[in-house]
């Protein structure tokens, strides 16, 4: 079967996109710089004026450590100040610096409860003069996420919701629909063994669970380096030549 989209279809797509974009500034995207990851996202990167949800898998749903670093890596590659809203102040700033997020760029907001956290989150998105707003929330209803998404669309600021629950059983909440543009789940994976004793660069299993105008996908990636960049694991990037032709056909 010929997978190449017909020119009429492409034309239709751009027209629909233009209809959807009416009245909104096009804020562009932030590419990850990792080929397969950017290819899975509609415009070749993470949309700027939009809300994105990230949760950790397994225990990460409660401690949110992996999700926080994933988000810090994204925020590190955006210019400007970052507003980071939390209810539980257990984030360790040196780790964010190691993910490329300079401490002088982060402004922390310690909200008393989820409600005021969402209010601060929205306020930050509406302000428009900052790079991104990160909010560590447990419950994110359709209404709340819609407000955040609209605020992000008007100002062009990227909203990053780190979903983090009190108990592991509450994480079933992640199945509920929200208005976020993309939804990610990031879980740790065993790192590749080193020739000497020790631990290597952390490896993440990154699932793109939901993506507006795009398909679901999952990736195995090396964690953020000191500039906040993800990378493909060495054996995937330089895979044996046997599998290469098949892959090319599938992508054509």
């Amino acid at each position: 079967m010929n997978n190449r989209p017909a020119p009429e279809l492409a034309d239709l797509r751009t027209r629909i996109e233009r209809l959807e974009q009416t009245g909104r500034p096009d804020c562009g995207v932030l590419p990850f710089g990792v080929g397969p990851l950017d290819a899975a996202l509609p415009q070749g990167g993470l949309a700027r004026g939009a809300l994105h949800e990230v949760a950790g898998g397994g225990d990460g749903a409660v401690d949110g450590a992996v999700a926080a670093l994933f988000v810090a890596g994204i925020a590190a590659r955006l210019p400007g100040q970052i507003l980071w809203c939390v209810t539980r102040p257990d984030l360790f700033a040196p780790a964010l610096q190691q993910a490329g997020l300079d401490p002088g760029r982060v402004l922390y907001v310690e909200a008393g409860d989820e409600k005021s956290l969402l209010a601060c989150f929205e306020e930050g998105l509406r302000h428009g003069g900052i790079g991104a707003v990160v909010g560590e929330v447990a419950r994110l209803s359709m209404t709340a996420s819609r407000r955040l998404q609209l605020a992000a669309e008007t100002s062009g600021v990227m909203g990053l919701a780190v979903r983090r629950w009190r108990r592991a059983t509450d994480a079933a909440d992640f199945g509920q629909p929200t208005a976020a543009t993309t939804r990610w789940r990031v879980s740790p994976q065993p790192s590749s063994p080193l020739p000497a004793p020790g631990v290597g660069r952390p490896r993440w299993f990154v699932e793109l669970i939901r993506c507006r105008a795009g398909d679901c996908a999952d990736f195995t990636l090396e964690a953020c380096d000191e500039k906040g960049r993800l990378a493909l694991p060495a054996q995937l990037a330089d895979r044996p030549a046997v599998s290469a032709p098949r892959r090319r056909r599938a992508a054509a």
Binding site: A93, L107, Y108, V109, E110, A111, G112, A119, C120
Partner: peptide
């Protein structure tokens, strides 16, 4: 932004590390 947030949640809850 700092003023709006500080008046909403309290001045000592808005900080840098």
């Amino acid at each position: 932004l700092i003023d709006v947030l500080a008046n909403r949640i309290g001045r000592d809850r808005l900080y840098r590390l």
